[in-house]
């Protein structure tokens, strides 16, 4: 009989050590990158473009490029994603069309990022003749973010109590008025949080932009949707695998990684904290 308790204790210890392992891995990676990369960070690092075949200078162009890519991606994916969720949660009636639509969104969520890259190349770059550009790469990232936004928005809409809708209908509001005046405002903070989290996802993606618009090097910030852009994650890849004098630019590499990490985790953390506060408020 004693062995049952021993087993229970042992299992509990193993479970705690699983969590411990994850904390060590995450903490180790973060601390290592901060220690290695902090030295490279300076005012110039953020305000100067790369110089001398990217062996010196800063990361202004890839940093701005990433922001531009995110903006394009979100301009496309956010409205489409939210409206898709509105359709699924407010209009859909469980018919065949809805089921297929749900299946499509779920399938889209599982498409490998490099396959999105291939799709972007054949559709945006070649078929629509956008060329290798900010627009093509941004839209490709948007396609990737779409299912994430749909998922988050649908959860947000589901959390709006049915009473709100009933109250609105009872006053003679149409469905669209109810959605626009009651449901969306109530769900909006949570939808926005989902959007923020999807930005965190998009900003760190590399594979979809390699052949749709990311540039090895551009001297200037992109001024048109049809120019190529540099992007932080791609910049990291280039510096680490195909740069000039890979070993001597380690400092810049670590610095770039750290900035990428700060951007992505900063956005993610904002989303996570915001969401936690929303939950706390709604549970009160």
């Amino acid at each position: 009989m004693k062995s049952r308790f021993l087993k229970d204790r042992l299992a509990t210890a193993v479970l705690w050590s699983c969590m411990g392992a994850v904390l060590v891995i995450l903490g180790g990676i973060l601390v290592f990158l901060i220690v290695q990369g902090a030295g490279a960070l300076s005012w110039e690092f953020f305000t100067q473009p790369p110089r001398d075949s990217m062996t010196k200078g800063g990361i202004l162009t890839p940093l701005v490029g990433t922001v531009q890519l995110v903006l394009v991606a979100m301009a496309f994916a956010f409205p489409v994603g939210v409206l898709t969720a509105v359709y699924l949660n407010e209009y859909a009636s469980g018919d065949r069309f809805t089921n297929i639509l749900r299946l499509a969104v779920r399938s889209l969520a599982g498409v490998p990022s490099v396959v999105f890259g291939l799709f972007g190349l054949s559709f945006f770059v070649i078929f629509l003749k956008f060329g290798s550009s900010l627009l093509s790469a941004g839209l490709t990232l948007g396609c990737l973010a779409l299912p994430v936004i749909v998922g988050a928005s649908e959860a947000a809409l589901k959390a709006v109590p049915q009473d709100y809708r009933d109250a609105s209908y009872a006053m003679g509001a149409t469905r669209w008025q109810t959605i626009r005046k009651v449901v969306l405002p109530a769900a909006f903070p949570a939808i926005l949080t989902g959007g923020i989290l999807s930005i965190g996802r998009v900003a760190g993606e590399t594979a979809p932009i390699i052949f749709t618009g990311a540039a090895f090097f551009t001297p200037d910030i992109a001024r048109s949707l049809f120019s190529q852009v540099m992007a932080l994650p791609y910049h990291v890849l280039i510096l680490a695998t195909a740069g000039t004098n890979i070993d001597e630019t380690r400092g810049i590499q670590y610095g770039t990684i750290l900035v990428l990490l700060l951007v992505v985790l900063g956005i993610t953390l904002t989303g996570v904290i915001w969401r936690a506060r929303l939950r706390m408020r709604s549970s009160r």
């Binding site: 994850v22 904390l23 891995i25 995450l26 990676i29 290592f32 990158l33 989290l197 965190g200 996802r201 900003a203 760190g204 993606e205 590399t206 594979a207 994650p233 791609y234 990291v236 890849l237 680490a240 695998t241 590499q253 990684i257 990428l260 990490l261 992505v264 985790l265 993610t268 953390l269 996570v272 936690a276």
Partner: peptide, 20 residues
């Protein structure tokens, strides 16, 4: 949330850790 943050590490960063 900690676990979630781990899921948000860009894959290029992990690849870099692998290399370095």
């Amino acid at each position: 949330p900690t676990l979630e943050i781990l899921g948000f590490l860009p894959s290029v960063v992990l690849g870099f850790i692998g290399m370095m």
